[in-house]
């Protein structure tokens, strides 16, 4: 495929997947542009996590097209290949390497050769060390760099995970419920952090916290029963009858 089908960074068209007859994703179509930040909301079981699973190669769709950068068919790649293509993912439950230090966590996530030979024999260059320092600065964990990740607070683990995504230097970040279990102050900081990241990189945020979504102030996509219910600004979608019906409630 020499000619790009779309200029969008991420392009999903007519994607469906079902588990034992249950349609988790039903004819889902979605596009995300370069550098765009998109918030995704929807009730439980709307298919948000499954959609992320499909984009990151964890689940194969039954039908539909999933394209990255216009010509890369994501359904043909597995998780690690997709990660190397430039898609980073943060899980709902913070997942960091608890028995490594904060610094090691970032060092392992750095974008570079992940092959066995390289990991066995190459050292981390000073440039790469600088990059780690930068990220530590961004995620506000510089003072805890040599502590074990297990000792961090819940919110700090969320940030460390976001930091690991940054170290990966992806073109697209998928962030699943980044502020779950955070204090209000941490939530505001996180929104700030994500806005800093957006622009340079595209970000998809799945979140339930409406205040946080409002803080982000970006285009919102509402998912319900596996397909897109509404799309637009938060005010626009909150006014939508169907969204109120299925998600927000009267």
């Amino acid at each position: 495929m020499t000619e790009k089908l779309t200029k969008s960074l991420l392009y999903l068209d007519g994607v469906s997947v079902s588990f034992d007859g249950f349609k988790a994703i039903n004819e889902l179509s979605l596009t995300v542009e370069h550098g765009e930040m998109r918030a995704i909301i929807g009730p439980n079981g709307a298919g948000k996590t499954t959609m992320m699973d499909i984009i990151t190669g964890k689940t194969r769709p039954d039908s539909g097209t999933v394209l990255f950068e216009g010509d890369i068919d994501l359904t043909r790649h597995d998780e690690s290949a997709i990660a190397l293509l430039g898609i980073g993912r943060k899980f709902q439950k913070p997942t960091v390497f608890e028995s490594h230090t904060v610094e090691d966590n970032l060092e392992l996530a750095l974008k570079r050769d992940h092959g066995i030979f390289a990991t066995l024999f190459t050292d981390t260059s000073s440039e790469q060390k600088e990059r780690i320092d930068e990220i530590l600065e961004t995620i506000r964990l510089g003072h805890r760099r040599s502590e074990l990740a297990a000792d961090l607070s819940h919110g700090q683990k969320q940030w460390l995970e976001i930091g690991m995504l940054l170290a990966q230097d992806p073109k697209l970040l998928l962030v699943d419920e980044p502020v779950a279990g955070m204090t209000d102050a941490e939530t505001i900081e996180t929104a700030k952090l994500l806005r800093e990241i957006a622009g340079e990189k595209a970000v998809i945020v799945v979140e339930h916290d409406m205040t946080f979504i409002r803080d982000l102030d970006v285009k919102v996509t509402v998912l319900a029963e596996g397909s897109v219910l509404a799309e637009g600004s938060l005010d626009h979608v909150s006014a939508d009858e169907r969204v109120i019906e299925s998600y927000l409630g009267r």
Binding site: E79, A83, L84, F97, E98, L108
Partner: peptide
């Protein structure tokens, strides 16, 4: 270190691009 990462959080290791 990657080995230990695989032991503790296999899918995280995969999602940052290790085979």
């Amino acid at each position: 270190k990657v080995l230990v990462s695989v032991r503790d959080a296999e899918s995280r290791t995969r999602f940052i691009g290790y085979r």
